[in-house]
Amino acid sequence: MNKPFQAKADFEHIFKEYFEPLCNFINKYINNWEDSREIVQNTFFKVWQNREKIEVKTTTKNYLFQASKNTMIDHIRRSKKEVELSEGAIERIESQAIDIKIVDDAMIKKAIIKGMSHLKPKNRKIFELNKFEGLTYKEIAQHLNISERAVEDNIARALKSLSTYINRDDNFYK
């Protein structure tokens, strides 16, 4: 039997690992960050209330993403947000299985953010300029007065380091 939410210490660990990617996952549907946070809070609250009874048959990750989606559907129906999503759209969301790629995308992004602190300073800076600021390799090269080839090398090394970090991070696979 897999009852991962029973002990408070375990629950805290799970909360801290999944809270942020769950908020981003829900936000993809409803595009409202505050409501997304509240939905995820409510999800964890319900899980905490039922922690003795919940038995996870798949993975903790899958359980939490599905539970959050269900809470989101309830939230949409109850708070009369149908003006933004039609009833037909709500039913479609409800009936569709969660795309595992979306789940993994949220988790990978969380891992990238966390892993960036382990990058070498130059790799990190160039990675940020490209991925967060949206600068092209040419623009970064001009900005830092280096070659485009050097920019490419730094990005590639950053991706390799992050890949190593993510593959080592146990939480991603749960």
Partner: peptide
């Protein structure tokens, strides 16, 4: 690497939280 590269391409949409 594809998954990582793909997620990294849209990382600026990701919002962080004071967990």
């Amino acid at each position: 690497i594809i998954s990582l590269w793909s997620s990294a391409s849209t990382i600026k949409d990701y919002q962080t939280v004071d967990v």
